[in-house]
Design a protein around this nucleic acid. Structure first.
Length: 455
DNA sequence: TTGGGG
């Protein structure tokens, strides 16, 4: 075995088509490992070095065992690529890792002295002459400002559009197998997804879902932020065990090519075959901007939905004077509240009611007994509107036609368009009771209280 | 072979 390996600077790669070369580079982006349409699993890396940061070089890695594909742990990690073949795609060179003659090793980019790879392909062998290359690349990358990739596709969650592909600069709150081979990613950028209208023909409002996929137990969401939407992103089954492939929990990333869809009047992200990840620093400008925007928003407006700032679609529902000075809470504040009783003032939309017919609002004893589904950008909950609380809310016992008109206003039913409805924002008081053991799913009960509907 | 930003 030779004790030297000729390492090619990335700027020279373009001049060596069809050649097999050795590279040492910093990984700045990776696609999530997944099955290819051929026989192998695949991940695509973007790498840079001192000689070339733009364009980044694509490295396409194929392996027959998904566990043997490189799994990037941290920003600035170093990859040694031995005997990769240079090909051309369109006008751009790329390196292709062939499992029959290529090998690789991944090194922590932060630790300056260790030469032990945290992952390597079976045939990889570190050669003494690699070490100074690795050291100088680590030293260089610590001083180099990595490019987060400014692009018109980057949006924050308050600007997403249905059926569009967007990039998000966001924090990865978690990844969870919600059912057998169904994985969900939880993403947050501190902004609120836009409120949606409901298609009354497709969505029977009494059967409305409370969330995309399954409910999570309180202990799973207890560390989620209470302001800003936690977007649920469904992974394509081709990704297999997403928890194994995704190492960025709690970190800021730029995640590219997320598809946005609407399901049951809720926003849903889809991790498609072309989604890619760039790990970002807490000090990255795009991360600092998002944190600053959230701080300024909370100082300016408190815990209210971003889209309720402009009150064109806001019903004046007054809470009784006792709670006028109470600060607003989000529904996620309620879902994660740990004491067994509390009263909150929220800005929400009534997205569904049960019973469906106003004539069924009373029990046989003549008492109001209604379940409403409340929504804000952070969550949906069922809340009860019963007895004296409902009398206060509706102003006693109005006629069925008056009550029906009030409910139509509350649900956003339009007088001249029965195909869509767009519930207005209202403010209301919600009392929370934890029925028994704290945090148990379904043990929380919510009642609308101290709220008067003024119409 | 696969894969390759919109």
């Amino acid at each position: 075995m030779s004790d030297r390996r000729r390492i090619m600077p990335l700027r020279d790669v373009k001049d060596h088509p069809k050649r097999k070369v050795n590279l040492i580079a910093v990984v700045v982006e990776f696609s999530i490992p997944r099955m290819s349409v051929g026989t192998d699993y695949c991940t695509i890396l973007k790498v840079i070095d001192q000689s070339q940061q733009n364009p980044e070089l694509s490295v396409n890695v194929f392996m027959d065992d998904v566990h043997q594909l490189p799994h990037i742990r941290s920003r600035r990690d170093i990859i040694v690529l031995s005997c990769v073949r240079i090909e051309r795609h369109n006008q751009d060179p790329c390196a292709v890792f062939n499992k029959s003659f290529s090998s690789y090793a991944l090194f922590d980019g932060k630790c300056s002295s260790a030469f032990r790879p945290y992952q390597a392909s079976p045939a990889f062998c570190l050669i003494a002459s690699d070490k100074p290359f690795i050291t100088s690349l680590k030293n260089w990358s610590l001083t180099f400002q990595l490019d987060p990739g400014i692009s018109p596709y980057v949006v924050s969650l308050n600007h997403i559009k249905e059926k569009d592909y967007h990039d998000l600069v966001c924090k990865v709150l978690g990844v969870c197998e919600v059912s057998s081979n169904e994985w969900v990613l939880f993403l947050w950028d501190g902004t609120d997804v836009p409120p949606l209208s409901f298609n009354t023909k497709l969505e029977e409002h009494y059967s409305i879902q409370l969330q995309i996929s399954v409910p999570l137990p309180t202990n799973a969401i207890s560390n989620f932020p209470c302001v800003g939407t936690v977007l649920r992103v469904i992974a394509d089954p081709a990704y297999g065990n997403l928890g194994y492939h995704f190492h960025s929990i709690g970190e800021w990333v730029r995640i590219r090519n997320v598809l946005f869809e609407v399901d049951s009047g809720l926003w849903k992200g889809v991790l498609s075959g072309t989604s890619k990840v760039r790990l970002l620093s807490e000090n990255d400008n795009s991360v600092i901007e998002r944190k600053r925007n959230l701080t300024e928003r909370l100082l300016r407006s408190g815990r209210v939905p971003m889209s309720s700032y402009h009150v064109s679609n806001f019903l004046t529902v007054l809470t009784v004077t006792d709670y006028e000075s109470t600060k607003f809470s989000t529904l996620m504040d309620l879902l994660t509240f740990s004491k067994d009783k509390g009263i909150f003032k929220c800005i929400v939309r009534v997205v569904a009611i049960y019973p469906l017919q106003v004539k069924d609002f009373w029990s046989p004893a003549g008492l109001y007994r209604i379940r409403v589904t409340l929504e804000d950008p952070t969550a949906r909950i069922h809340a009860l509107l019963c007895g004296e609380d409902a009398e206060l809310f509706f102003g006693g016992y109005p006629s069925i036609s008056v009550l029906a008109a009030k409910m139509n206003k509350l649900l956003g039913v339009s007088e001249n368009d029965d195909s869509t409805r767009n519930p207005p924002w209202i403010q209301c008081c919600v009392e929370l009771h934890l029925a028994n053991e704290a945090g148990a799913l379904g043990a929380r009960h919510y009642h609308i209280r101290f709220t008067i509907l003024v119409l």
